[in-house]
């Protein structure tokens, strides 16, 4: 807008006083900074948990050509995501309830048998309780294993309970929830 006189300039200033006033401007910048920092702080745990889950999924996967040493290392890494007394109910993939040690053994056996193992997390829902240091996560995962001429795929819904210990997130409970329950035998 062009100014053609002193009077008109004053009028313009009065109309936009809220936007041009220094205090308001600095106030808005400060408010935006506070909101950004708050969102970053709140989101930090969410990002960390999601990153941990992606790392875990990467550990579970097996690509063609991976040897026994890699399998052995991964079987140790997998339990590193769990608390010492984690409760694992991963039926029907694993026996009714397994300990960390049993999980490591079963993981090693399965990884040794299959040629490739693909583990895809399709969608996830996460609720973080920051004061309590816990988080509940639900996600659907599709696992596809291939060995020889066989190719088997399973889809499951997982519920994980994460707890924060020593500034890091660990899985305290892991459970497979069956949306469709097979007939009781």
């Amino acid at each position: 807008m062009a100014y053609h006189g002193r009077g008109e300039q004053v009028t313009h200033r009065r109309e936009n006083i809220i936007l041009t006033h220094k205090v308001w401007r600095y106030g808005l910048v400060a408010l935006a900074a506070i909101v950004a920092v708050t969102i970053y702080q709140m989101d930090r745990d969410t990002r960390r948990i999601n990153k941990r889950l992606n790392q875990l999924a990467g550990t579970v996967e097996k690509t063609a050509g991976e040897g026994h040493l890699s399998t052995l290392a991964k079987s140790q890494q997998v339990v590193g995501y769990l608390t010492p007394d984690a409760v694992l109910r991963l039926h029907p993939v694993l026996p009714q309830q397994v300990t960390r040690r049993e999980l490591s053994t079963v993981f090693y056996q399965v990884h040794s048998r299959v040629e490739t193992l693909d583990f895809r997390i399709r969608d996830r829902r996460l609720e973080v309780d920051r004061p309590a240091g816990t988080a509940n996560m639900r996600f659907t995962a599709i696992g596809t294993a291939r060995w020889g001429a066989r190719n088997e795929s399973q889809i499951h819904e997982f519920h994980l309970r994460w707890v924060k210990q020593d500034r890091e997130w660990y899985i305290d409970q892991a459970e497979i929830v069956q949306a469709i329950r097979p007939p009781r035998r």
Binding site: R122, D123, R124, R125, R138, F139, T140, I142, I155, E157, F158, A179, I180, P183
Partner: peptide, 24 residues
């Protein structure tokens, strides 16, 4: 369609029996 963790991945199935029925 039967939802899992969210509605982005769902099962597709046919209903064979309803509440109160005995099915086999």
């Amino acid at each position: 369609v039967i939802e899992m963790a969210t509605r982005r991945t769902m099962y597709l199935k046919r209903v064979l029996a309803t509440p109160g029925d005995t099915v086999y």
